Simulated assay, not measured.
Amino acid sequence: MPQYLFNPPPVAALPIRGESTLFPVNRLFFVGRNYHAHAVEMGKPVDKSVERPFYFTKSISTLTPSGATVAYPPETGNYHYEMELVVAIGRAGFRVKAEDAHELVYGYAAGLDMTRRDLQLVARDKGRPWDLGKDIEQGSVCSEIVPMPGRVIDSGALELRVNGAEKQRSDVNKLIWDIREIIQDLSLFYHLQAGDLIYTGTPEGVGPVVAGDVLEGSVEGVGGVSLTIAPAA
């Protein structure tokens, strides 16, 4: 057995609905600006006829299960929620054709891409990486995985409430790049692997949270995700 200088981190994993086994998570991919209304909201409209999807990643250590209570993060005064449908990849694929994309789908989850919006916008406007704005400890929240092998979700209501008040409401059918297109394009850059999660983008209505807020989101046919914001540590 190998000897390590210190104990390596445990395997990141999420529960699977109806199963006693866990879904081991490999990588976290995020699609940027994938709803037209949100792209306009952020001041960066998208023209699909001349653009292609873009992505960012987060450290696997940011993965946080639904229902957690997390501290308001440091070095920000504008911490935002972004409600998203998450695709769970169940088999390897590289340079996947759109018509074959369903073969990589294991299932789906509901997720929150938490964002230091002030730091993200500074980085964006100065042409710098988004890491400090996006790669936040406990900032990638995800529900249990719902097995739907081979199924492509192309519609379904998506919403988020903060302290019971509706903040985001849209439908998966408003994705600029749908799930087949995302898997096809992302697999040109990466050898997708079982355990990869793809957060597919957020609709309009993103906004700030403060300590004490309770976030509750849902995706029709998939389930819900929740998060409580605690005071800064």
Rank of each mutant, 00 (worst) to 15 (best):
L158Q: 14
E159T: 15
L160V: 15
R161M: 14
R161A: 11
V162E: 04
V162C: 13
V162M: 10
V162Q: 10
N163R: 07
N163L: 07
E166T: 15
K167R: 15
Q168G: 03
R169Y: 05
R169G: 01
S170W: 09
D171M: 09
D171V: 09
V172E: 04
V172P: 04
N173F: 00
K174W: 03
K174D: 13
K174I: 00
L175H: 04
L175K: 03
I176T: 02
I176L: 07
D178N: 13
D178R: 08
I179Q: 06
R180C: 10
R180F: 00
R180K: 13
E181M: 02
I183V: 07
I183H: 03
Q184G: 00
Q184F: 03
Q184D: 03
Q184T: 03
L186F: 02
S187A: 02
L188C: 10
H191V: 07
L192T: 00
Q193T: 10
D196F: 03
D196Q: 05
D196W: 01
L197E: 08
L197S: 07
Y199I: 07
Y199R: 10
Y199Q: 08
G201Y: 02
T202N: 08
T202Q: 05
T202F: 06
T202E: 07
E204S: 11
E204T: 05
E204D: 12
G205H: 08
G205W: 01
V206L: 09
V206N: 10
G207W: 00
P208L: 02
V209A: 06
V209K: 02
V210C: 11
A211H: 04
A211Y: 03
G212W: 00
G212M: 05
D213K: 04
D213G: 12
V214R: 15
V214T: 15
V214K: 15
L215E: 10
L215C: 08
L215G: 11
E216H: 15
E216C: 12
E216Y: 05
G217C: 11
G217V: 13
G217E: 11
V219N: 13
V219P: 12
E220S: 13
E220A: 14
E220M: 07
V222Y: 09
V222R: 10
G223D: 06
G224E: 11
G224C: 09
V225H: 10
S226Q: 11
L227A: 13
